[in-house]
């Protein structure tokens, strides 16, 4: 492979061969090398061998990635987010958890009441119907009904699912927020703090307003429900077929 009659220039010129093969030599360097190659069989042979090697390199192909970039990006973002430190103070999350607990408590109390009343729930003609089996009542269970236990289990499942979604959304938002905050300089952080204060005040007002509305609606609904229950109880007790009568 190695030619015998190397000239003093050969070593320097051979260091340029890779650049020549890959088209990276400047015009003057290329001119010099080509002039050398014309008179140097050893370097021409070397160049020829390297050119064949260059061609052989193309035979090594690697498998394509075949990944969905969107899915990959989502997986990476989720993985990267897990590695982030949690915020030391999480007031919004704490509030969220408190409200979830409150709602769950209210739902549990309602379900307990329904359970005590022996309530059965049924869908007939597309309408939700409630029936009450007061102590001693022996009315046959209507078709296609759900027991209070089943309703309780279903509502508990839905509350858990809803709470889980809320928490997941909150986690994602928190990660995104953390990423953005991490990029901010001092001025931007100050502006953000002012914005957050303002937004919190606005949110608090909006939340108070919505809570007041909710409380008024709940009180009204409670009154109507109690009235309906009383009427139902009266009708059941005054039923001539009632065994307690």
């Amino acid at each position: 492979m190695e030619h015998e009659d190397l000239t003093p220039d050969c070593g320097r010129m051979r260091n340029e061969l890779a650049g020549y093969l890959y088209g990276e030599l400047a015009l003057d360097a290329r001119t010099l090398l080509e002039a050398h190659l014309e008179g140097c069989g050893a370097c021409r042979e070397e160049l020829s061998g390297l050119r064949e090697t260059q061609a052989l390199l193309g035979r090594w192909e690697t498998p394509p990635a075949n990944d969905d970039p969107r899915e990959l990006a989502a997986a990476i973002a989720a993985r990267a987010g897990q590695a982030l430190p949690r915020l030391a103070v999480q007031p919004r999350r704490a509030r969220l958890v408190r409200w979830s607990a409150l709602l769950c408590g209210a739902a549990a109390a309602l379900l307990f009441l329904l359970s005590v009343l022996g309530t059965r729930v049924s869908f007939e003609g597309g309408n939700l119907q409630l029936s009450f089996a007061l102590p001693g009542a022996s009315a046959p269970a209507p078709r296609d009904t759900l027991s209070a236990d089943e309703v309780q289990a279903y509502i508990a499942q839905q509350v858990a699912l809803h709470t889980s979604h809320l928490e997941q959304n909150f986690e994602q938002s928190q990660r995104a927020l953390y990423q953005r905050v991490a990029q901010m300089n001092k001025e931007e952080l100050l502006r953000l703090a002012q914005t957050v204060d303002y937004a919190l005040d606005q949110n608090q007002e909006a939340l108070n307003s919505r809570l007041n509305n909710f409380a008024r609606t709940a009180a009204s609904t409670d009154a109507q429900t109690i009235q309906a229950l009383n009427q139902l109880a009266t009708m059941t007790v005054s039923n001539p077929n009632h065994p307690n009568r």
Binding site: M1, R14, N15, E16, L17, A18, G19, L21, Y22, G49, L50, E52, T53, Q54, L56, L57
Partner: peptide
């Protein structure tokens, strides 16, 4: 970088010589 490329190609040429 140029030296490493030249040296790398030369080493490869030696190892792949039987295929050329």
């Amino acid at each position: 970088v140029k030296s490493r490329m030249t040296r790398g190609l030369t080493l490869l040429r030696t190892r792949l010589a039987t295929l050329e």
